[in-house]
Design a binder for these strands. Structure first.
Lengths: 312, 312
DNA sequence: CATTAGTTATTAATTTAAGCTATAAAAATA
DNA sequence: TATTTTTATAGCTTAAATTAATAACTAATG
């Protein structure tokens, strides 16, 4: 059994196809066929069920794949140890960011980070929390930025900042007269929400339900972007909640519709999340330092109340 | 990097000598030299400091060895998974047993175990708790039987039985008149103890100190075996404590000197201990079932108080 | 039911790399 | 300094990984 063979097993398990897996491994398909055969012969057990189309894992195969992922991850850590020893911060680093954090956070830290760590090749993708967790676990992402806590055993969290919710309330809304909002003011019925899948949406729903148990069966309107939410709100279709960093980019007219919460302000915890094996931990730490350094100037709320990003 | 290379690294780290490590790996010394060189070149870091005699690990080398042990252990688990799937219980299994458990427990379960699992080649060694832990960690033992709890992060414990302490008190001893002992009766001054290194000795000392803080500077007499303790005691040199299973083998004359404790009787917890990676867990479970099945008939104490095997 | 597209397995040749023997070089010991 | 012990190097052999070409298989389609 070799680490290379385990790589092949993982690639095939992922693509359910020898030919595609071979491409990803930069070898020819017969190489995979023979290496898998050798491994299966050595273990004297079938890993893949070639009868099914597309190819499927056998029962042992699933367990072997799980263990193979462990081994491959652990073996990657050797290079990591060496890099750490040398103080080398570089190489490819794949980062996933949730949509409601991406447009505000990224411009803030990206420039200074790539300047400070020019050898790190950052590859950033916009993904949902679920996709980020999945890909971290499969080894396709080195880390993610998402709302926490996630309460996932395999994933570690490192809080970056606490971002308060801010009410966006058009002038004709019943709450427009209130200078400071209370959580108890919120009515889910006239709350504009993001589409399903956004954890910010789930946070808002949790917040509304936190105070009174509201019916969550149908919401008035949903949208895919926060910008659209603001426009819908301006049309008089309801109020909405925005993450604090989003409010910094609004023009003065729109800013006049912002209503902050009385403290403790409800807020989401935004964290760097990564696999518990702490692969590439030195880059993760560099990222953490960069981001929390930048953000310290932008967000200064001492008293917040964290809202879970997971629907309860 | 290959798993084979990691094996070589571990062997050299262990023997501090290429030639001896090569023997253990069943290859020639030049093979090790070249493979280690290749690995060091690939990682671009020195793992061994050949300047020192005997050879030493570099700082990164130590971390690499630690990680290599992880990887090798994890990769062994693949065969383990396959064996488990096939229901195969067999192969070599190395078990370490502490001296005060060995002579009483081994005869009880060994025969029935090898009859039930003829394909397991048991290799049993008598070792101290420290040696067992060390060797489990280094991969030289698959499991051990020792007094617990050990509070070691890397080692899992699975209690087999609770073995009460029994007082052995010669007729002319001040406590000989008491039918049932109390912990508070014990005086470390007239207690015969095993030599240093036996955890049963430590258990007895903890027990004596549990009730009153006694001076542990010098004991009257120490011995390497429980049989000798009994003889010394018969000579009027003091009383001693025996593990319950030992008392079953005594002849009637000696048995008349036994004094049990009032419940809850102080007892030691005897457990199967093994590496947290749960390598060969199916054999460990088979062992556990065999032993606890056998012992259930021999020890039936409901109310015991566990004494720590570690000196506090 | 033959055809085709898409897939995995097989074969034979090639390249790579692991391991061996013999020996040199270096270091420790006498 | 001579001797012993230990690691490194060189050259060779053998085993294994990989490739290109192609066969065999499967599922879908006309």
């Amino acid at each position: 059994m070799t680490i290379t063979q385990l790589h092949y097993v993982l690639a095939i398990a992922e693509h359910k196809n020898f030919t595609k897996a071979a491409e990803k491994c930069f070898v020819t398909q017969p190489t995979l066929s023979t290496q898998i055969q050798k491994l299966e012969e050595e273990l004297d057990v079938l890993i893949f069920d070639r009868g099914k189309k597309p190819i499927e894992l056998t029962e042992v195969g699933k367990k072997i794949v799980h263990q193979a992922r462990n081994i491959v991850n652990e073996s990657d850590r050797i290079q990591d140890i060496v890099d750490q020893q040398k103080g080398f911060i570089g190489g490819e680093f794949r980062l996933g960011i949730i949509p409601t954090v991406m447009p505000t956070l990224l411009p803030m830290f990206l420039k200074s980070f790539i300047k400070k760590y020019p050898k790190v090749k950052l590859k950033i993708e916009e993904l949902t929390t679920e996709e980020i967790m999945q890909r971290i676990h499969e080894g396709h992402l080195d880390a993610g930025i998402a709302a926490t806590p996630l309460e996932n055993e395999l994933i570690k969290e490192r809080p970056l900042y606490y971002e308060p919710f801010v009410g966006y309330i058009p002038t004709d809304h019943r709450l427009a007269v209130k200078k400071k909002l209370e959580v108890s003011d919120l009515e889910i019925e006239d709350m504009l929400l993001l589409e399903d899948g956004h954890c910010f949406r789930d946070g808002v729903i949790n917040l509304c339900k936190a105070f009174k148990d509201q019916n969550d069966e149908h919401f008035q309107l949903e949208s895919g972007s926060i910008e659209t939410l603001i426009k819908l709100s301006n049309e008089g279709l309801g109020m909405t909640l925005l993450p604090y960093l989003h409010t910094l980019d609004l023009n003065d007219t729109l800013k006049s519709n912002l209503h902050h919460f009385n403290e403790p302000s409800p807020a989401r915890e935004v964290s760097l999340i990564y696999h518990k094996s702490e692969l590439k931990i030195h880059i993760i730490e560099a990222l953490h330092n960069s981001i929390s350094g930048i953000i310290r100037g932008a967000i200064a709320f001492s008293n917040v109340q964290i809202i879970s990003p997971i629907l309860k």
